[in-house]
């Protein structure tokens, strides 16, 4: 039969020689191999103290962004939940009441927003689907937990803090290509009707 690779070995059921039957040379051989490993550098990374390199496009724990004024961007459209292949996202929408304009940017907002971190596969499709630039995946690593309930992250864990210095930076993942794409899209994300009017004007001008 033709060999697929030249690394394959033909197995022969031959009798062992006396030296092989004694096993002692083979044992000594193995012992030398393990002894060599005794002096090798350990491959361990002591995690909390040392962190390994994380790629710029790494997709970790999600964040629900606020806009510059501190209002939540999410409008509970449900596109993220629809796009989610793992069905990890659930939400309940509610209508914004009077006086809550500072808190929620849109008239409809997510009263409950939950991501099951045990189901999530961190594919990033929710981020791509979001029309309001509300959800992003960050380079943070999801904490472990002893029970399943703790792994369902609600708004308390997902929404970023209000204070300007505690905002979560998501710009690392926004490479130039991503930004260009978002800029050039006809009905771009995250635009008010004034922006839209300006955009249409510009287009007509050209």
């Amino acid at each position: 039969m033709e060999r697929l690779t030249n690394r394959s070995k033909i197995v022969v059921n031959k009798q062992m020689t006396l030296a092989e039957k004694m096993y002692l040379p083979a044992i000594a051989n193995g012992m030398v191999i393990t002894l060599k490993h005794l002096f090798k550098k350990p491959a361990t990374i002591s995690y909390p103290e040392e962190k390994r390199y994380i790629a710029p496009v790494y997709r970790g724990q999600h964040v629900l962004k606020r806009d510059e004024a501190g209002a939540e961007r999410c409008t509970a459209c449900g596109l993220c939940a629809v796009s989610c292949p793992a069905e990890a996202i659930t939400m309940t929408a509610a209508e914004r009441r009077k006086g809550d304009e500072k808190l929620y940017r849109e008239e409809k907002y997510a009263a409950v927003y939950e991501i099951n971190m045990l189901r999530c596969i961190f594919c990033g499709l929710c981020e791509e689907a979001c029309p309001k630039e509300a959800i992003f995946l960050t380079d943070r690593i999801v904490d472990v937990s002893g029970n399943r309930e703790d792994m369902i992250y609600g708004k308390d864990k997902l929404t970023e803090p209000m204070a300007a210095d505690k905002r979560i930076d998501v710009s690392v993942r926004q490479t130039q290509e991503v930004l260009d794409f978002k800029q050039n899209k006809a009905f771009g994300h995250n635009r008010t009707h004034l922006d839209l009017a300006k955009y249409i004007q510009q287009k007509n001008h050209h």
């Binding site: 490993h37 550098k41 350990p42 491959a43 361990t44 002591s46």
Partner: peptide, 13 residues
């Protein structure tokens, strides 16, 4: 410790 060193690990520390 020796098990760890033989397996390129650090062991209890």
């Amino acid at each position: 410790k020796i098990a760890a060193f033989l397996q390129d690990r650090i062991g209890p520390n």
